[in-house]
Amino acid sequence: METAIVEDAAAGQKRPFAIFFFVMFEHIDYILANYFSAEIGHNEQEALDCLRQEVGHGTTIWKELHLQLERAFAEPEFSWKSALSRNNVCHLADEDTARKYAEKLLRSGLNTHLR
């Protein structure tokens, strides 16, 4: 596993960042970039509706996304702030706020809408 040190300018600190996160959580990045990005123009409800139509519940991609979400939320080094920012979803002030927003959007939102 290749690891780099990146500086979190907002927090004024350096933290390890594993390059493999981009690959390990590719479905999360794909979903954020292609459904929830500000560039797409959907509100949260519209993004969830589009995702439900295209992915559906119980499909292979849904199962893999669900697994990646569980792993990402369990991984202390995974930065939701960075994931949301790099996929142009939103720019939040701190990691805790970003994690809470991601939980609301992805965990709760997907579980509610993809049934």
Rank of each mutant, 00 (worst) to 15 (best):
M1L: 03
E2I: 12
T3Q: 09
T3D: 09
T3W: 02
A4F: 12
A4S: 10
I5D: 11
I5C: 10
I5V: 15
V6H: 04
E7M: 06
E7T: 10
E7F: 14
E7Y: 08
E7S: 10
D8Y: 06
A9S: 05
A9T: 02
A10H: 11
A11N: 02
A11R: 03
G12K: 02
G12D: 01
G12V: 03
Q13F: 08
Q13W: 11
Q13H: 06
K14V: 07
R15F: 04
P16D: 05
A18I: 10
A18K: 14
I19M: 04
I19T: 02
I19D: 04
F20H: 07
F20P: 08
F20R: 06
V23A: 08
M24N: 14
F25W: 04
E26S: 09
E26K: 07
H27K: 07
I28V: 05
D29S: 11
I31G: 02
I31M: 10
N34D: 13
F36S: 04
F36Y: 04
S37L: 04
S37H: 03
A38W: 06
E39R: 03
I40F: 07
G41A: 05
G41S: 12
N43H: 07
N43E: 00
N43S: 07
E44H: 13
E44I: 12
Q45I: 15
Q45P: 09
E46A: 14
A47W: 06
A47I: 04
D49C: 05
C50M: 13
L51E: 02
L51C: 04
L51P: 05
R52D: 09
R52P: 11
E54Q: 15
E54T: 13
V55H: 03
V55T: 08
G56R: 15
G56T: 12
H57S: 13
G58T: 14
T59K: 10
T60G: 13
T60H: 15
T60Y: 14
W62H: 15
W62T: 07
K63L: 14
K63S: 12
E64I: 12
H66Q: 09
H66P: 13
L67S: 14
L67I: 12
Q68N: 09
Q68G: 13
L69H: 01
E70V: 11
R71C: 06
F73K: 01
A74T: 03
E75L: 09
E75T: 14
P76W: 03
F78W: 03
S79H: 05
W80F: 07
A83I: 01
A83S: 03
S85F: 10
S85A: 06
S85W: 10
V89N: 02
V89W: 01
V89S: 02
H91A: 13
H91Y: 13
H91E: 12
L92D: 04
A93N: 07
A93Y: 15
E95R: 04
D96N: 14
T97G: 08
A98E: 09
R99N: 05
Y101K: 02
Y101R: 01
E103H: 11
L106D: 02
R107I: 14
R107P: 08
S108L: 07
G109Y: 00
G109I: 00
G109A: 00
L110A: 00
N111V: 01
T112W: 01
L114Y: 05
